[in-house]
Structure formats: C-alpha cells, structure tokens
C-alpha cells in the first residue's frame, strides 16, 4: 500500500502537451511519484513521446528517452544490463508504452524482455487505439468501437471494431513473471499500490492500466475518471494481479451495471444499439465466467 500523503511533492512529469483530461498524463505522473527520481525511463513513439519531449520543452525530469516504436521491451533489457554492468543500486528501469506499442508492434520485444527475467517495470497505458496517429484500431480496441480504421460505416454497414479486446494480462501472466497486474485510473489507491509492488519486484513486472482518452473515445475531458469507473463497474475492465504464481481478482462489482451505461457515454460507441450491447454483455459474462473459474477473488486465501 502507498500512503498518498507520503508521495513526494515534486512533479517528475510536468508541462506536457497531452490533451486536457488525458488519463495517460495522470498515469505517468503518478507512476513517477512512486518510482522516484532514481528512475531511468524509456517510452516509445506514442502520445507520451509527442507530448513530453519535443525540443526544447522537456516534460520529464528524470533521465529518459524516446525508444523506437517496436523496441520498448528491448531497450529496457539493455538498460537493465547496464544497471548490472555499472553496479548501480536502488534504481528503477521503467518503460511506459501505449496499447499499440505494447500489444501490437512491441509485443515481441516485451515478451522477450520479461522472459529474460530482467529487472524492469513495464507499464502499458491502454487507451484502446493508436491515438497519437489519429485513433486507429489496435488489438486492444474493444468490440464495437469506431476508430478511423474500424469506422462504424453508414447505416446497416460496419459496426466498428469487429473483434473483442485481446487479453494482454493473460498473455503476460503466461510468461510466469514475478509480478503482473491490471489497474485503472478509476482506482488510484489500487494503482499506486501496484506500482509500488512492481517497483520492489526483483525481476520483471508488468502493469496494464486502463486509461480513457477524451479525444479518441469522444467524451468531455472532465469525465475521464467517471468513464474509467463505469468500465470497471460494468465489468468491461477488471482489476487483477498475478504474484506468487496465482491470479487474484482485486475487485468484483456486486452487480454489474448495464454495459450500455458505459457505452452510451462515448462517441465511439454511439452507433451501437441493443443488439450490439447484448453481444458485448454476453462476451463480458463469458469472460467473467472464465475469470471466476480461474482466478481467486480478493481476500480469499487458498485452502
């Protein structure tokens, strides 16, 4: 657990050019508050690079660099090797990448990096599409979402994204790494605690953080946190962590709110109707059936 009152005053990400209400901004600055000044940061070509490091306005205060799009995991491996070579103590090698940079073009490199067992902390902030290039679909774009490359089409045409969101968390769990978790800006205490655990993990750790994007999803900037909460409460995002060889579900809503209450808040889902809401709800229930069978709810100790 992290006592938020103990978090440092100093902002290690400041003056960035992200859109108003950008959850990735919140995610990145809070992570740095936990990992602290002794952090070496790499981030790939992404929203984060575009809004933080265009000369001469440098928004990150820690040593950092822009990595090639596909290479975040691999540059972290090189940095971790350097930490060992230079015999540095008490430092964090941190990567922050988006959903495309992690689950699509960067998947091979992140898989390699965590498989090698390097002491790195890899964070995927998931805004569910390639936002920096203008909202194109990624493998983490959810079913039904209209993006510029999965458009909704004219009436009776396409429904937007045709595939369900890939389960990146389970892919990373399959690597049997020491620590892996999902989080959301909807639950800051949970998120901060997971960052702290990941930071202290002696080996690779991975965080997948749901990060709503007002621009790409189509909602008012002030509602970022609310949208994130609705995703969790409707069961379309889950909070879980994997450590000591088992997955724990950190939060299970007593009763899911109807998915339409989440979907109707965003322009990207505006074209959907009851038929698609049903498809999404059925998929959600299937996923949760799997989750409930395989993962343990919070607070229940293994017999």
């Amino acid at each position: 657990m992290v006592n938020v009152r103990d978090l440092p005053e100093r902002e290690l990400l400041y003056g960035h050019k992200a859109c108003p209400g950008c959850a990735a901004g919140t995610v990145a600055r809070l992570i740095l508050k936990v990992t602290g000044e002794r952090t070496f940061l790499a981030y790939p070509a992404s929203c984060l690079s575009t809004v933080t490091s265009i000369y001469p306005q440098m928004a990150f205060a820690v040593p950092s660099f822009t990595a090639p799009f596909a290479a975040t995991g691999a540059v972290l491996s090189g940095m971790a090797a350097a930490v060992k070579a230079k015999k540095m103590q008490d430092v964090t090698v941190l990567g922050i990448a988006g959903d495309g940079g992690t689950a699509d073009i960067g998947l091979q490199a992140v898989s390699g990096a965590v498989e090698r067992g390097d002491r790195i902390l890899y964070v995927c902030y998931d805004n569910e599409a390639y936002m920096n290039t203008g909202i194109q679909r990624s493998s983490l774009t959810p079913y039904g979402a209209a993006t510029t490359t999965s458009p909704a089409g004219k009436a009776g045409g396409a429904i937007g994204e045709k595939k369900f969101k890939k389960n990146l968390f389970e892919i990373m769990v399959a690597h049997r790494i020491p620590y892996c978790a999902t989080a959301s800006v909807a639950n800051i205490a949970d998120l901060l605690g997971k960052v702290a655990k990941a930071k202290d993990t002696d080996g690779p750790s991975f965080l997948h953080i749901h990060a709503p994007c007002p621009t790409g999803w189509g909602f008012a900037a002030e509602r970022t946190m609310e949208i994130a909460r609705l995703a969790v409460e409707s069961g379309l995002w889950f909070l879980a962590e994997y450590q000591d060889g088992r997955v724990t579900l950190n939060y299970r809503p007593k009763e899911f709110i109807p998915v339409r209450e989440y979907l109707k808040t965003q322009k990207r889902f505006r074209h959907l109707g009851p038929a698609e809401w049903n498809v999404i709800e059925e998929q959600r229930d299937r996923e949760w059936a799997v989750i409930s069978g395989r993962w343990e709810p919070a607070g229940r100790e293994k017999a």
């Binding site: 290690l12 400041y14 003056g15 050019k17 108003p20 490091s53 000369y55 001469p56 306005q57 440098m58 928004a59 990150f60 205060a61 820690v62 040593p63 950092s64 660099f65």
Partner: peptide, 16 residues
C-alpha cells in the same frame, strides 16, 4: 546528440 536537459519548460499551457 539529440538530447536536452530534462525538466526544462519554456512555455506555459495556460492558453489552452
């Protein structure tokens, strides 16, 4: 090389 001092701000975002 293409580097710059970290944490250097030259302009505000207030105009947004």
């Amino acid at each position: 090389g293409p580097c710059a001092d970290a944490g250097v701000l030259v302009e505000a975002n207030a105009g947004w």
